[in-house]
Design a protein around this nucleic acid. Structure first.
Lengths: 148, 148
DNA sequence: TTAAATAGTAACTATAATGGTTACAAATAG
DNA sequence: CTATTTGTAACCATTATAGTTACTATTTAA
């Protein structure tokens, strides 16, 4: 199972996208997630390096680096989890066994196939969809007061 | 990234499916993988519990529990990696923040969506495909001697 | 110009999962 | 019976994650 990095990043990006002030700090974001600001800064640093958000010292994140309908889950996932294959492969199999000698390339092929489909799916969902889902929930449920 | 359990399981299942003797032991399989027999037995135990192979004390695995064209990657994956969601979600978000209170169900939805596609893809590949790939490789490359 | 705030990062800790190993009881073929 | 093999328990080393403290660099704004 992949770590919480991806889902926490969606939380961070949503807060930045929906903020009403002109900027938002890692301290504030950490307060919404209920975690440590350093953890938030680490993820924000990755999101910034991947060109998804704009942030600067002293004032915090000023916004998304591009519109929410141009930021796909794939970009976000790769930014924080990397672009590694889906599963690990045991190297160093016995080359004297016909199966041991050939299984590597066969499972690597399956691995690539899985990864391709996985990325396709990630690439079919955009940050705007997340924001719309959040908004829908807001209308359905009673309106919670803005965090203080 | 998922562990080597899935790819090692494909190795194990291939050996069992292609064996020429009437049974095959965890010791022999471990020799082809180049790992420890206990690790192989642990995976074989899971594959047996999920109804994919038949094995018994003293003689080892006698074969697949059903034809290779009826064993999907999904069954194998779930047998050894479980059916957990794709990524972890940070619980305990701040319920006083409108985003913190609602992001959980939104990312859970994305998680399910990803998992569903992932399973669909796993369910489109069968053990017979792996065996055919192995066979194809055997015909292309020079024939390695059977492991002794 | 200075002071306060904040990002960015290094370093450390605790926890959990993985891959590997030793050891041994239970089962069973022969 | 006995030798073999599965099925587990228990342990260890390594790695990744999540969280934390502490510090430097930057930069707004007074």
């Amino acid at each position: 199972m992949y770590s919480t990095k991806f889902s926490v990043s969606l939380h961070i990006l949503s807060l930045i996208a929906l903020k009403e002030e002109k900027s938002i700090t890692s301290d504030y974001i950490a307060g919404s997630i209920n975690t440590n600001p350093v953890l938030v800064r680490r993820l924000m640093s990755l999101l910034k390096k991947s060109g998804l958000i704009v942030a600067q010292t002293k004032i915090g994140a000023t916004g998304l680096a591009k519109p929410a309908n141009e930021i796909s889950m794939k970009e976000i996932f790769i930014a924080v989890e990397g672009d590694a294959p889906i599963f690990k492969i045991h190297e160093d199999t016995n080359q004297n066994c016909p199966v041991g000698a050939r299984i590597g390339s066969v499972v690597t092929h399956v691995n690539h196939q899985m990864k391709e489909k996985f990325n396709e799916e990630l690439d079919s969902i955009y940050l705007i969809d997340i924001l719309m889902d959040l908004d829908e929930q807001t209308n359905i449920n009673d309106h919670t007061e803005v965090m203080k």
